[in-house]
Write a protein that binds this DNA or RNA. Structure first.
Lengths: 215, 215
DNA sequence: TGATGTGAATAACTTCACAGCG
DNA sequence: CGCTGTGAAGTTATTCACATCA
């Protein structure tokens, strides 16, 4: 009967939403709120306050009934749950147009992510520094990733190289991959892959955006 | 009792997977397969063949029992269901680093998407042609979008401009938005928004990639 | 009173098991 | 006989309703 009451089944979607709550809380924090209600937190998100409280309940919550939540405490709590309370090193593999755009993406820093290295196989790019990140030879990936203890990678190589590079990443100790290559990665259990497949997303959108055209 | 047997409830996830099936079928088509089984189609995806057949069943399927599916026919069928059987015009709004990377993204063309225009408010960019797409003044967006009849937009403007720009897009007739700005868009019912929030996705990954660290 | 926290009810989605048919 | 197609069963996730407590 420890404080972890029933972690036996936490919905995946709950985990995904925690990041959104964190973003909302940061915004409220900047606006100098110190205590907020569940409705305030979810008011800018397309999420009900019921859903928010339910999500929080899986982790043992810290609200005060009749009052709300301490912004600072809840941020720390969510950061700890997600594992982003300390700096989180990530690498970018494949410094093409998309990869280099991600090197410059400002949204990572706010959540304790830091891109510590980038890799490519193009001699013309290796050794250069983009957005404060040095582009390394992909042949040196294992050494760099191991020595820095990197656990997360953003994969932006061409589709036909993705599987091979992903396997190498896993061999170096990487445990999570944000995959922008439009191909499915086949990796051992325990390695987490999140596919960001823009063509598929667009098709998904197309389907819905064409419904009810009569209206 | 028409052919649409029970579209009363098609899972959203089914729609999302149709795009993946399409990608798999294209690959098989290139390998000169003309008839394939559900297992072949899903073998490169992390999806069971049961799931595939169930998904297809919502639309009235065209397999032959004991044989499989005609690759060409199934591709046409899925394209029609998704609404990507004819060329689908899209625009990119916000030609920063991410926006210009997406202008060059090769994966759209294979699925009949064509970026017909891009918009920015930076005088230095307006009038230039990147990746074969002319950058237009965002002030002219309404005119261009209306005259071309564009229904889909990729939004890559800064977060604090996103809501305002999105509203303008809707006013121009856009019905679906692929939103890369890390903010929630509040738009009328009937407008579909798909958020691609990279920091949130990374946090999601972080959570899972830290589980079972003892193993 | 006015918020949180949570079991119970409902809804959405997936898996199973097998009938149907070429 | 093999693979498709689909109800039924099972699982996962969301919503509701309300007890709880400062």
């Amino acid at each position: 009967m420890s404080k972890k009451k029933k972690d036996y089944r936490i919905p995946q979607e709950t985990i995904r939403r925690l990041g959104l709550y964190l973003r909302s809380l940061r915004k409220l924090q900047q606006q100098n709120f110190t205590v907020v209600s569940s409705s305030q937190i979810t008011s800018h998100l397309n999420i009900t306050s019921d859903q928010f409280r339910k999500d929080l309940s899986y982790f043992g919550s810290l609200g005060k009934r009749g009052v709300g939540y301490s912004v600072d405490k809840l941020i720390k709590h969510l950061e700890r749950v997600l594992g982003v309370d300390a700096e989180c090193k990530i690498i970018v593999v494949g410094v093409g147009k998309l990869g280099s755009a991600l090197l410059a993406y400002p949204g990572f820093q706010n959540f304790n992510f830091r891109i510590v290295a980038a890799f490519d196989n193009d001699i013309g790019k290796i050794g250069r520094v983009w957005e404060g990140v040095k582009i390394e030879n992909i042949l040196n990936m294992e050494e760099v990733v191991r020595s820095l203890g990197v656990k997360l990678a953003i994969l932006t190589v061409p589709a036909d190289a993705a599987q091979q590079v992903a396997e190498k990443l896993v061999a170096c100790g990487v445990r999570g991959i944000l995959n922008f290559a439009p191909t499915n990665l086949n990796l051992p259990r325990g390695i987490y892959v999140l596919n960001v497949d823009m063509a598929t997303e667009l098709m998904f959108l197309t389907y819905f955006s064409r419904k009810n055209l009569a209206g």
